[in-house]
């Protein structure tokens, strides 16, 4: 029966519906959730680049030759390694751009007479002042018997040493 009286249940139902929809709209448009920043992306990029660069320096130019890393550790000291490593990690595709990464390299080797693991620095491009850094490592096979000059004082035998490089954005 339609008359002039406002229908009770209908009005109440409409009022309740409007109230809920309005609340939901208000809530959704105003709530924010804090998501964590992905700070490890920088570590990931640095670590991948450092591992690539060490692999390149440990690849000889032809079959049977020694790689640059092997020759540096057996005979030449660490300077050419440092220059080449710095050049490779700081090169970008645009030849006019240069990145600003710094490194510090240490050699770990096993001393067969004492059985201890000893370390000796190879080369670094800057002093490490506690920046955020990643460490990359590479196995290198060396055999520093004479006539090699053995500048790092390793055992004169066939051995595998570990080159560890600390890499940071300077």
């Amino acid at each position: 029966m339609v008359d002039g009286l406002g229908q009770l249940y209908t009005i109440e139902g409409v009022a309740a519906g409007i109230l809920m929809v309005f609340t939901a709209y208000l809530v959704i448009s105003s709530t924010t959730v804090i998501t964590p920043q992905d700070i490890h992306i920088i570590d990931l990029q640095l670590e991948q680049l450092g591992n690539d660069a060490l692999a390149i320096l440990d690849t000889p130019d032809s079959l049977g030759e020694k790689s640059l890393l092997q020759r540096q550790i057996e005979n030449d000291g660490g300077n050419a390694f440092g220059e080449n490593f710095s050049r490779i990690i700081n090169s970008k595709v645009n030849p006019l751009e240069v990145d600003n990464l710094k490194f510090s390299a240490i050699l770990y080797y096993r001393d067969i007479s004492s059985g201890n693991t000893l370390s000796i620095p190879i080369n670094n491009s800057a002093t490490y002042l506690r920046e955020k850094a990643v460490k990359v490592k590479r196995w290198v096979y060396v055999n520093p018997v004479p006539p090699c000059s053995n500048p790092f004082g390793l055992n004169t035998r066939n051995q595998t040493v570990l080159v560890e490089v600390l890499l940071w954005r300077g």
Partner: peptide, 21 residues
């Protein structure tokens, strides 16, 4: 009928809000 209409409107609004949430 008044009750049915009112309650129906309420339930539709409630279901819509639940989907939104």
């Amino acid at each position: 009928i008044d009750f049915l209409v009112g309650f129906t409107i309420f339930m539709i609004a409630f279901i819509y809000v639940t989907m939104m949430m």
